[in-house]
């Protein structure tokens, strides 16, 4: 193999880029465009601002979480606990707000304290996952499988098997965080966009992002290149936790309640979005913009099936499954090409 790439003679300046469009890089984008065209053909309501806003708003929770998952997976880790973590944070937030209501009274200060609780719990939960994998030297899959069960049990216990509901008065104050927005764009969409843009820039243009992909590519090389592997790893889990916190504090005002059914299977949706977006599951290469497209693709499939009666919406999962498998097939052929 080595021979194939060897130049027969020394060349001072090899060409920088190879011409042509790389369809594997643009694959997710093309799939998205295809889905949009398909949707528009099947239903004339599809491109209405109401529907698009609806799709994006529903994408935003998973999307924010999936941006964090992109970093975790690029670094060669995995976090299965995010769905349960979101439910646990939601439940704890609501309980904290309800508890503090008597002392603080209903108002924005109380809501802000509740948000801070959510964010803080996210950071702590992420740190627990990260410390167990790095300092505890336990595989991420096992650690987060464990914490997934723990968080889920905690929220069920807190809710006493039922539902934890936010006080109505506070709920009315909190509601605009989900339903309100700027210039017709709701807050979850705005926050998702910000998280995605910052995430993309961090992944692509900072040393932290470079270190993440180096560790995922070969941890030993990273260690020998003086990268603090454990610290970077830990940071990805903390980032993931914080983003779960952000997603949850946007999610709570939507329903104003939390139960053991909150956030079920979010972890798999987030991972699926990451993979569809072109990030490699075993780490080493990640792209946040791909993840964003992955999330939107998954929501669009759901949306299109709901808008048309050609195929039963019950088959939603099957379509998503096909897309995931196709995405991985494309990834594999990319590897052979270079």
């Amino acid at each position: 193999m080595t021979v194939s790439t060897e130049a027969p003679a020394p060349s001072a300046s090899p060409p920088r880029r190879r011409p042509g469009v790389n369809f594997h890089v643009l694959g997710p984008l093309l799939a998205l465009i295809l889905l949009v065209v398909l949707g528009a053909l099947l239903n004339d309501q599809f491109l209405s601002s109401g529907n698009i806003s609806n799709v994006l708003a529903r994408s935003s929770f998973i999307g924010i979480i999936a941006v964090g998952a992109t970093f975790v997976i690029t670094t060669g880790g995995i976090d299965l606990s995010v769905g349960s973590m979101a439910a646990f944070i939601a439940g704890s937030m609501i309980l904290a707000i309800n508890y503090l209501l008597a002392g603080m009274g209903a108002g924005w200060p109380l809501v802000l304290v509740g948000m801070a609780v959510g964010l803080g719990l996210g950071l702590i939960s992420g740190a627990v996952n990260g410390l167990l994998t790095t300092r505890g030297r336990i595989e991420a899959f096992i650690v987060t499988l464990g914490t997934m069960g723990i968080f889920r049990a905690l929220v069920t216990w807190l809710a006493n098997g039922g539902t934890i509901s936010l006080n109505f008065e506070v709920g009315d104050i909190y509601r605009p965080v989900y339903y309100g927005g700027v210039a017709g764009i709701t807050w979850p969409i705005i926050v998702f966009a910000l998280v995605a843009i910052i995430g993309e820039v961090v992944m692509r243009r900072t040393a932290f992002g470079r270190h993440c992909s180096a560790i995922g590519s070969n941890e030993q090389v990273a260690r020998y290149s003086a990268i603090h592997v454990d610290n970077v790893r830990l940071l990805t889990y903390v980032l993931q936790g914080a983003l779960v916190g952000v997603a949850t504090l946007l999610y709570v005002p939507r329903l104003g309640s939390a139960s053991s059914a909150t956030g079920v299977l979010w972890e798999l949706e987030a991972i699926a979005a990451v993979i569809i977006g072109g990030t490699t599951l075993k780490g080493g290469y990640g792209r946040v913009w791909g993840t964003v497209i992955g999330v939107v693709i998954l929501s669009l499939i759901d949306n299109i099936l709901n808008l048309t009666d050609v195929v039963s919406p019950y088959l939603n999962g099957a379509f998503q499954g096909v897309i995931i498998i196709l995405a991985v097939l494309l990834q594999r052929s990319r590897k052979g090409e270079r």
Partner: peptide, 21 residues
């Protein structure tokens, strides 16, 4: 680096695994 250490690669964006030892 390419000039100083005389690194010979067919393409600048070749994967390092495809370079000779």
């Amino acid at each position: 680096a390419i000039a100083r250490f005389d690194i010979r690669a067919r393409r600048r964006d070749v994967r390092v695994g495809n370079l000779s030892g």
